[in-house]
Computed example of a mutant assay.
Amino acid sequence: MAKRIQTLGVVDRLFPQVLSGEKRSTIRWKENQITIGPLRFVCDGDQQQTVDVEVFRCTHMPLSEVASFVGKTDEWPDQIMLEGMREHYPEIKLSSIVQVIEYRVP
Results as ranks from 00 to 15, higher is better:
F56Y: 15
Q48A: 15
E54L: 09
F41L: 03
D46W: 02
E65I: 03
P38G: 03
V42N: 01
E54S: 12
L63A: 02
T59V: 13
Q47H: 12
C58E: 11
H60M: 05
Q48L: 13
G37C: 07
F56V: 12
L63G: 00
P38A: 12
P38S: 12
F41I: 01
C58N: 13
P62T: 09
A67F: 07
L63Y: 03
T50A: 07
V51T: 14
H60V: 03
Q47G: 07
L63F: 00
D46V: 02
D44I: 13
V51P: 04
D52A: 07
C43Y: 03
C43I: 04
D52W: 03
D52F: 06
M61Q: 10
L39F: 01
D44S: 14
F41G: 01
F56K: 10
P62C: 08
P62A: 13
V55P: 00
C58Y: 06
D52K: 05
H60A: 06
Q49T: 09
E65R: 12
C43A: 11
T59N: 00
L63P: 02
Q49C: 12
V66S: 07
D46Y: 03
R57Q: 11
Q48V: 11
R40Q: 08
T50L: 08
P62Q: 14
L39W: 08
Q49G: 09
L63W: 02
F56I: 12
E54P: 00
C43P: 04
R57C: 09
V53D: 05
V55N: 13
V53A: 03
H60Q: 12
T59S: 02
R40P: 00
L63Q: 00
R57G: 08
V51Y: 05
F41W: 05
E54F: 04
D44H: 13
F41K: 01
D46C: 02
D52C: 09
S64W: 13
V42Q: 08
D44K: 15
T59C: 02
M61G: 06
P38L: 06
V53P: 00
Q48N: 15
V42F: 07
P38E: 09
T59K: 05
S64P: 03
D52L: 10
L63H: 01
H60C: 11
S64I: 07
Q48S: 15
V55Q: 06
R40W: 00
R40H: 00
V42K: 05
A67G: 01
E54G: 04
P38R: 10
G37Q: 08
V66T: 13
C43E: 09
T59Y: 01
C58W: 03
A67L: 05
P38V: 03
S64F: 09
Q48I: 14
